[in-house]
């Protein structure tokens, strides 16, 4: 089912290290199969660069099946490349046309400094998680966890939030580089579960506090995050986080 091979032009952001100013460089990507994934296409281009004695384009990837959240690149101005509900590694070259010029950039956010080329430092997300994205009750092994009844509606909603893979596309797409969709998904996911109740208020306050400290922007409800999210996390969760936060400040204010 392979289609005709394509010849593409890539404009790629190259940056030697965090201090380097960086620049765009143009590469030819000849003979690209439409069956390749976007990252496979980059692998092929990198082989060519290495053969020519150059430094390959550095980019993050791990599972390459759309569930780890490691791949992170803005393709033609859209985080993960503008196919709905798709990570860059699951974006296939059949969506591009022969002769296309593709611009590839790293996530752009003050809280995600560029390490090198297309790789950014996303440890700010880790610190937000460490601030409160956990539960402290022992849930035991699988049978014990299943012994706690959870209403179907709640578990469905919690699963929708838990889909978040922490890739950072929401931050990359947001004009304010706001991490609210990510934090909202994490806050909502645990607050919906019975196991998440003990730290419910503490979690909302601590995660929001950490998010602010990391230098992410604020939500202006433009909806860009929801549009690019590879897991299609809904903007509703930001409203839910706002509700959780309101609940938390009222409860903690009364203590």
């Amino acid at each position: 089912m392979s289609g005709e091979a394509m010849n593409l032009t890539l404009r790629v952001w190259r940056q030697d290290d965090a201090e380097d100013a960086g620049r765009f460089e143009t590469y030819n990507a000849p003979d690209i199969s439409p069956d390749m994934s976007f990252l496979e296409m980059l692998d092929v281009v990198n082989e060519g660069i290495i053969a020519d004695g150059g430094e390959p384009i550095a980019f993050d990837s791990d599972c390459r099946e759309g569930i780890c959240g490691t791949c992170s690149m803005v393709i033609n101005g859209v985080a993960h490349g503008g196919q709905q509900g798709t990570t860059a590694c699951q974006l296939h070259m059949r969506h591009f046309r022969d002769g296309d010029t593709i611009t590839i950039e790293p996530w752009r956010a003050t809280a995600f400094p560029v390490h090198r080329d297309l790789i950014v430092d996303r440890t700010s997300f880790e610190r937000i998680q460490q601030a409160g994205g956990f539960i402290s009750v022992r849930t035991g092994s699988v049978p014990d966890a299943n012994a706690t009844p959870v209403p179907k509606e709640d578990s469905d909603l919690a699963m929708d939030a838990a889909q978040c893979i922490g890739c950072g596309a929401c931050v990359a797409a947001c004009k304010n580089a706001s991490a609210m969709l990510f934090v909202a998904a994490k806050v909502s996911h645990l607050s919906l579960m019975p196991q998440g109740q003990p730290e419910r208020e503490r979690r909302a306050l601590a995660m929001v506090q950490q998010m602010d400290e990391e230098g992410f922007g604020n939500c202006t409800v433009t909806g860009s995050c929801e549009a690019v999210c590879p897991k299609e996390i809904s903007l509703d969760f930001i409203a839910r986080m706002n509700r959780e936060y309101g609940r938390a400040i009222l409860k903690s204010g009364c203590n």
Partner: peptide, 13 residues
């Protein structure tokens, strides 16, 4: 929070 603009014009797939 966002000091760098993207160069790529939005061309959704």
């Amino acid at each position: 929070a966002r000091q760098v603009r993207y160069e790529g014009a939005v061309q959704p797939v």
